[in-house]
């Protein structure tokens, strides 16, 4: 019986510490962080267009496309496709995406299509694409927007984020930031 009493009292006080004081402390300190603990926001002319870290759907030819998403970039939820590597239906889907990409990007050869641009991300909210995925779209975006490929290429160059400290991890391009810059190019 003593064990039970101790259990109850200990549980109470530990709940207060672990579930109350701890997150409150983090929340309070988090207020000082960029985005004030609510998530970092990107605005265009004072209008919120999205969260820097949360990917968005870009399917129009005039934008650089994001990767395919299993949740259609609705960040109310998040998920990957969970398709297995040998699933025939999945492989068909990828095949379709390649075809669709080739249709929208005339002049690009099949061997140039980056696999990451036709496979879905883990969260369904991937904010980034690989540099290769950005460069491969330059031709299409330039054609649609009537810009020179060279100019667009240098825009992408400027938006390639190097690995951490230059040595750790992959390079990437934030699609939202790139597209915002693209809009501002005019």
């Amino acid at each position: 019986m003593k064990i039970f009493l101790v259990s109850i009292k200990l549980t109470l006080i530990l709940i207060i510490i672990c579930a109350g004081l701890f997150p409150l402390t983090v929340a309070l300190v988090g207020k000082l962080a960029p985005g004030r603990g609510k998530g970092e926001i990107i605005t265009v002319k004072g209008k919120v267009v999205g969260y820097a870290n949360v990917g968005q759907k870009f399917t129009a030819d005039k934008y650089f496309w994001s990767r395919p998403s299993a949740v259609d970039y609705n960040a109310a939820g998040s998920a990957g496709s969970n398709k297995g590597p040998t699933n025939p239906r999945y492989l068909e889907t990828v095949e379709d995406r390649i075809d669709s990409f080739l249709v929208h990007n005339p002049g690009i050869k099949r061997g140039e299509v980056p696999a990451e641009l036709v496979t879905a991300s883990g969260s369904g909210l991937d904010p980034d694409i690989s540099p290769a995925s950005a460069y491969v779209q330059v031709k299409r975006v330039a054609a649609v927007r009537g810009l020179s490929e060279a100019k667009l290429k240098s825009l992408v160059d400027a938006h390639v984020e190097k690995p951490l400290l230059g040595i750790l991890g992959p390079s990437k391009v934030n699609v939202l930031k790139l597209n915002v810059a693209l809009e501002e190019l005019r």
Binding site: K83, G122, D126, P170
Partner: peptide, 9 residues
Amino acid sequence: SMEGKEIRF
């Protein structure tokens, strides 16, 4: 293999 993976990692 990038299915189910994030570009930033």
